[in-house]
């Protein structure tokens, strides 16, 4: 199953998993920190393949949403993995 994990940087430099998103039946299902998951569902993420545009992606966009998570969450404090198979 295609999966992306989101990690948050901790005070000691380690990283804690705060959310896992999985592609299930062409839709992304995220589980983890309740507020974070709700905010993500509501606001979505930018489509980083749309150069200069303002297309937004939601979990129902499936694989494309999953693919873009690593570009949306690339900050030092919050970062996403590439798509991994689990």
């Amino acid at each position: 199953m295609k999966t992306v994990k989101i990690y948050k940087l901790q005070n000691d430099g380690s990283q804690k998993e705060i959310m896992v998103c999985k592609l299930i039946d062409n839709e992304v299902v995220c589980e983890g920190d309740k507020i974070f998951v709700e905010n993500l569902k509501k606001s979505g993420i930018k489509d980083y393949s749309d150069q200069g545009g303002d297309t937004m992606l939601k979990p129902e966009d499936g694989l494309k949403f999953l693919q873009n998570l690593k570009f949306a969450f690339r900050s030092d404090y919050l970062n996403a993995t590439d798509i991994i198979e689990e």
């Binding site: 994990k5 940087l9 005070n11 430099g13 690339r74 030092d76 970062n79 996403a80």
Partner: peptide, 25 residues
């Protein structure tokens, strides 16, 4: 005093600790 890679994706960041206290990205 130490450097630890951050992230799994497109970042190239690391968490560093400084001698005599201090932390930075």
């Amino acid at each position: 005093s130490s450097e630890r890679k951050i992230g799994h994706g497109v970042t190239d960041s690391s968490f560093i600790e400084l001698v005599d206290d201090g932390k930075a990205v």
